[in-house]
């Protein structure tokens, strides 16, 4: 096999490289900067130029080499290239080709264009390793334009009630997607420090984000009224949030699709907005890549692979290190790291 599944992660013996390994290795290819994919302690890193600044910021001094999308790197006869995955800025699927056999590792991905992230590109391959975070038919996303209409309307309503609007999402990825799609004619956009740190990095790499203001202790409380604050999921129920009172708080996540999860979150509003493919997206991606063999990882692995096998797509499961089925409940995989 061109790729093997080891206890340190996905491994290519021919090129002696790992993909998103979870234990320290010599050479690591990194699909994107979320903490469960780019970990500390490898000797060499390779990722896209667009993903690199955040990874460097998070991991500090690491030996990191970058590549453009589509550029081919040959290691011991294995042709390696990175292609847009549409998950967050700089996120990639990784294509490996050896003696005419092609494998693609999806990392995390979504098919819908979000106005900020490089658009997902389908790559033909023999073997496709796919995530399955939302690999059940109960997960179907509405177009983001409708979701943002809902969010903007909610912001307007809160403004009319002289309340602050607080919306939470991961600091890296979701927060910027939200910012980019808000109607900033309604009011000003404030950000939690962890989010603003990422914004600054993205702006330095010439990504045009809408104007945001970092929340600081010096800003008088009244300033927030009628405006929106973008916060990390960990802010829910924290003392940090109290100063925005009176406020209405919402959460933007694919998990908000389930009423139980919405109620557990104890937020006023749950908006179904995910940077992962929904059920249809996963199935479409698999159809488009025309793979003969699929391996399913991250999420509802056993269910989704059974479904694929019944549809005539040969599919197996890749167990990730410690996660087991943690992704199943959503809350455990929320990437709440302070970037």
């Amino acid at each position: 096999m061109l790729l093997e599944f080891t206890d340190r992660g996905i491994y290519c013996p021919q090129a002696a490289i790992f993909i998103d390994p979870w234990k320290p290795v010599d050479k690591a290819l990194i699909t994107h900067g979320h903490a469960d994919h780019s970990r500390w302690g490898h000797k060499h890193y390779l990722c896209t130029a667009a993903a690199a600044p955040v990874i460097k910021y998070r991991l500090g001094k690491v030996n990191l080499q970058t590549t453009g999308f589509g550029e081919i790197h040959t290691i011991n006869g294995v042709k390696i290239s990175f292609h847009p995955a549409g998950h967050i800025v700089g996120s990639a699927q990784i294509r490996l080709e050896y003696k005419g056999e092609v494998w693609v590792v999806s990392g995390d991905y979504k098919l819908e264009e979000d106005g900020l992230t490089e658009t997902f590109e389908s790559i033909k391959c023999h073997t496709f390793i796919t995530e399955s975070t939302f690999g059940l038919p109960i997960y179907e996303w509405r177009p983001q334009i409708e979701v943002f209409q809902e969010i903007n309307n909610w912001w307007r309503q809160n403004q009319a009630l002289r309340k602050t609007t607080i919306l939470t999402g991961y600091a890296l990825g979701k927060a910027q997607r939200i910012i980019q799609n808000l109607d900033d004619s309604i009011g000003k956009i404030y950000t939690h420090g962890a989010i603003e740190n990422v914004n600054e990095i993205l702006r330095q790499q010439n990504i045009l984000l809408k104007d945001t203001i970092r929340v600081t202790a010096e800003i008088p409380k009244e300033e927030y009224i009628g405006n929106i604050v973008i916060a990390t999921p960990s802010a829910v129920g924290s003392s940090w949030i109290k100063k925005f009172s009176p406020y209405s708080i919402g959460s933007a996540s694919g998990w908000m699709n389930l009423r139980g999860a919405r109620r557990r979150r104890s937020v006023d509003r749950g908006f179904v907005l995910s940077d992962h493919a929904d059920w249809k997206g996963l199935n479409t991606a698999i159809d488009l890549c025309e793979a003969e063999q699929v391996y399913v990882t991250h999420g509802y692995t056993s269910i989704f692979s059974k479904w694929l096998n019944e549809r005539g797509v040969s599919a197996g499961i890749v167990e990730t290190q410690f996660e087991g089925e943690l992704a199943e409940i959503g809350e455990s995989t929320e990437k709440e790291e302070e970037v």
Partner: peptide, 26 residues
């Protein structure tokens, strides 16, 4: 009506934990 096999419906129901909601979503 949703075009999913019965076992997949059952699995989805286990995750959602509510029959009415599972049907509405699927």
């Amino acid at each position: 009506l949703s075009g999913v096999p019965f076992w997949l419906f059952e699995e989805s129901y286990h995750v959602v934990g509510d029959l009415a909601e599972t049907i509405a979503l699927i």
